[in-house]
Design a protein around this nucleic acid. Structure first.
Length: 839
RNA sequence: GCGGGCGUGCUGGAACUUGGUAGACAGGCCAGGUUUAGGUCCUGGUGCUCGCAAGAGCGUGGGGGUUCGAGUCCCUCCGCCCGCACCA
């Protein structure tokens, strides 16, 4: 369509396709959203920086409505900040490695790279079609060798610092995807990706020592400016810090020490038995030679077969077997029997517990099931609890009993004394325990970054020297997982030379978890073409941290905690100043349709591409921001999009009419009557929209304010064209509407603004509300009698309190309700209401 | 079970800062107008009940409380959603 079609007065209808294409070409031709780094000649020091970032998409097929929402929200913020005087970097990339592309490859034979790059092309095209203001010079895909070279480099740095290590451990194995998974990727015992029940397997794997940073991950919440409370809570719970003591129970017979972690050292005197997890490495040795040997072996094997879910499911049905051994309770020298039971988890603490049935529900159940003694050592101060012998298990606080020299003390006070008493002769010590496990990062899959390690018979495990990076992912014929990485089949690739001795060596064939790729992409955006280093320190230190991060809450733990860990490690490695990657986090809610999550199998998906075709990107983006507060989810409605389309068309027509009737540049000074009223409405809308966009992220009400302004212009405009300041005011109000709508509907905003002001709206500062115009000279005084609304009276803004009361009493409707009654109280809230209390 | 959040017209939602006009703005529906026609555009109406109207009564999940005044604060019950779930 010819350019002239979008000029005022030459066509009949709002044609979003033409307008959007026009502006997209301008932005592309002029590199409007490209931003220079410090050190480059174009760098403008005068502005403060702002890094606005949305979580990068995983490219699979075409973008869906969730993507549209994320980038619409992020783009609104990016535009808003630019016009508020910030130098904004707003990049885009693709989280391109991962299982779905690989699984598709197994089915179709198409190389995952091809499928992924096809999808990337489709994402890129859609993002451009949506008019998202991205600096495309910074685009990257995590599957590109120029990117994963640095993923491998970071791996080596972590390895150097002892933060990447390989060891054997019970790990989660997904039998469908044929790979191990990180703890964080197991949801209720199921694979996060495919939903299959996971198994526990004893395997040697690569881990990142995120546990080293457990305390920092907790402490540094302090450094964040604004994160949703629920995300912080979820991470806190996931890290799961507990304070307590490690206490050693000794099995003299076999000369073995069994340390346990407990948060209740004050209940040590109540320990009547001792339990090991079935996976505990010493169970076999303990049972050996006892009458229980066979039973223990069977129980351990049984537990190994059972999934984590099955074990959790039999929640209240405690099972276990005796070991036929005893350990000594270090506080009283008592010998207590040992058991193996699956309610004790190997992954937490030491894999062994002291059982205090009187004060722990789980131990209580086990004791009841196995007829074991239950000894109360704390009496509740609540008289009812104290009296009631059967108030067990009792988890509250109170006086210690049956506890030797501590009898009579309050348990909270004895707590510290017991710990230091044990510590004094090496029987235990104060300890902190975390639920957080190390991050398992190796995967037995093809489509990921190879781990840059080589195994040599002579030298052992050798990291690949930096100058040999990247270790390129070789092409293979068969992607199907067989319990080992498909890379193992690429014999030529696997066989290599030892970097240390030059002899024969073999490459590590596992690839890295894709969450490794996405833990640092926001740093590479800052310096994406750098071949010398991962990023220039100067550049990264300038832009970091991300000032506003936007994405789905589903990443509350996984991605957001891994990235936090990475940034702390990179700080310690010395390549980055900041300690936290994301200063502010916004999590948007999910869009549903007919109340259900959109999915292909349900057939309730909404295609952004189709809708953009029909209504234009502006309508779609504005609708998504208008359907409710973006933090909440919302149900998709086709009528809703049409409604927004009608509104945009209404603004378009208004702009055209105003452009044709009022000359640019008229002054609104001295506007009075309706002109003043309209001017005030425009400034009200500026004020409202500004406060709603940031920090509230209430885009729906910001857009509603613009709608109100447009409605007001329609209501008043025809009477204003004849007045001295009228036409200029209508023009100003209309241009303001376009300007305020620009972050949500950038194409139409730019178009209408250009007609009216002959300028580029994105180059104009965000409008400021004039405080004088926000003040009204009159307001509606609310008059209540006994708190019930009886009248509204228009009064001058500066009316005195006494006069307000007189005016209120003078109202006819109020009079009727006062009739024959005495006024006992007059409440006056100036600027708002008068309430007359009568009896 | 534990922790957190929410509950407002037919629907999405508004009422923020500070307890002070409940239902902004939209969608839907109803009526009227413009149009050859329209899935266009414009105007009006739309919480419930009574009333021609003016107006009155009721109304923010149920019950109770604080207050001149409660969607908002407190207590309690019900319902829905999310997170965690044998973490010693």
């Amino acid at each position: 369509m010819a350019d002239s079609e979008t000029r005022p007065g030459t066509d009949e209808r709002y044609d979003p396709q033409a307008i959007e294409r026009k502006w997209q070409l301008v932005w592309e031709a002029e590199n409007t959203w490209v931003v220079a780094n410090p050190g480059s000649p174009e760098f403008d020091e005068s502005k403060p920086k702002s890094y606005v970032l949305e979580m990068l998409p995983y490219p699979s097929g075409e973008p869906h409505v969730g993507h549209l929402k994320t980038y619409s929200v992020g783009d609104a913020i990016a535009h808003f900040r630019r016009r508020r005087g910030y130098r904004v970097v707003h990049p885009m990339g693709y989280d391109a490695f991962g299982l779905p592309a690989e699984n598709a490859a197994i089915q179709t034979g198409e190389h995952p790279r091809e499928a992924t790059e096809k999808s990337i092309a489709s994402f890129r095209e859609q993002f451009m079609r949506w008019g998202i203001s991205i600096d495309w010079t910074r685009e990257l895909g995590t599957h590109e060798p120029s990117y994963y070279r640095w993923t491998q480099w970071i791996f080596l740095k972590l390895y150097e610092r002892g933060l990447a290590h390989r060891h054997e451990a019970p790990v989660h194995w997904c039998p469908k995807d044929q790979t191990v998974l990180a703890n964080e990727q197991v949801i209720d015992g199921h694979c996060e990706r495919c939903g299959t029940l996971v198994e526990l397997r004893q395997l040697e794997q690569w881990f990142f020592r995120i546990t080293e940073y457990a305390q920092q991950l907790l402490d540094d919440f302090e450094l964040l400016e604004s994160w949703p409370e629920n995300v912080v809570t979820m991470q806190r719970n996931w890290i799961g810090r507990s304070e307590g003591a490690e206490v050693v129970f000794r099995c003299g017979e076999l000369d073995l020490d069994f340390p346990v972690f407990t948060t209740r050292p004050d209940t040590l005197f109540g320990a009547t038995f001792f339990v090991l997890a079935p996976e505990h490495p010493l169970t076999e040795q303990l049972a050996e030679g006892t009458e229980h040997e066979q039973a223990v072996r069977e129980y351990v094997n049984e537990s190994a077969r059972a999934s984590a879910e099955e074990r959790a499911d039999e929640a209240h049905q405690k099972t276990g077997v005796p070991l036929g051994r005893e350990v000594v309770n270090p506080v009283n020298g008592e010998r207590i029997p040992m058991f193996v039971a699956d309610y004790v988890l190997m992954e937490y603490g030491t894999g062994a517990i002291m059982a205090v049935p009187a004060h722990d529900e789980r131990d209580y159940e086990f004791a009841k099931a196995f007829g074991l003694p239950i000894r109360r050592v704390i009496e509740g101060t609540d008289p009812e609890q104290a009296r009631d012998d059967d108030g067990l298990p009792f988890s509250g606080d109170g006086q210690m009993v049956n506890s030797d020299r501590f009898d009579g003390e309050h348990n909270r006070e004895a707590y510290g004394e017991i710990v230091s008493w044990l510590a004094s002769d090496g029987r235990g010590e104060a300890a902190v325990n975390y639920r957080l496990r190390d991050w398992l990062v190796s995967r037995q899959r093809y489509w990921g970054a190879p781990i840059p390690i080589v195994y040599c018979d002579e030298c052992g495990m050798i990291p690949v020297p930096e100058d040999q990076l990247p270790i390129l992912l070789p092409d293979v014929e068969d992607y199907a997982p067989k319990g080992r990485s498909p890379l193992a089949a690429a014999e030529d690739w696997v066989r290599t030379e030892c970097p240390s001795c030059g002899g024969d060596a073999r490459r590590e064939t596992d690839t890295m978890d894709t969450f490794v790729d996405s833990s640092w992409y926001f740093l590479r955006y800052l310096d994406p073409k750098n071949d010398e280093q991962c990023w220039s320190k100067e550049v990264a230190n300038y832009w970091m941290p991300v000032d506003q991060y936007i994405g789905g809450v589903e990443h509350a733990i996984l991605h957001l905690m891994y990235a936090r860990f990475f940034i702390k490690a990179l700080h310690d490695i010395g390549v980055l100043e900041v300690r936290e990657p994301f200063a502010n986090l916004f999590t948007q809610g999910m869009i549903t349709r007919d109340g259900a999550k959109m999915s292909k199998s349900r057939g309730n998906t909404v295609s952004p591409a189709e809708n953009v075709e029909r209504f234009g990107a502006d309508s779609l983006r504005t609708y998504i921001c208008f359907m409710g507060p973006p933090i909440k989810g919302g149900d998709w409605s086709d009528e809703g999009v049409e409604g927004i389309f009608r509104f945009l068309a209404r603004l378009w027509r208004l702009g055209r009419e105003v452009a044709g009737r009022a000359e640019p540049g008229g002054s609104t000074d001295g506007a009075d009557g309706h002109a003043r009223e309209l001017l005030a409405k425009a400034h009200w809308a500026i004020d409202k929209a500004t406060r709603d966009i940031e920090p509230r992220f209430q885009f729906n009400t910001a857009i509603a304010a613009v709608m109100e302004l447009v409605n007001e212009i329609y209501r008043l405009k025809d009477g204003l064209y004849g007045e001295p300041t009228g036409a200029a005011t209508v023009r100003f109000a209309t241009a303001t509407a376009a300007s305020l709508l620009f972050p949500f509907a950038p194409h139409l905003g730019a178009e209408v603004y250009e007609w009216l002001e002959d300028a580029r709206v994105w180059e104009q500062p965000w409008p400021e509300a004039d405080p004088e115009l926000l003040e009204r000279d009159t307001y509606m005084l609310v008059v209540q009698v006994n708190g019930k609304l009886r009248d509204r009276i228009e009064v001058a803004a500066d009316t005195e309190e006494g006069e307000l009361v007189e005016l209120a009493k003078g109202s006819q409707n109020v009079q009727r309700h006062l009739d024959g009654k005495a006024i006992v109280k007059e409440i006056v809230v100036p600027g708002r209401l008068v309430n007359l209390v009568v009896r």
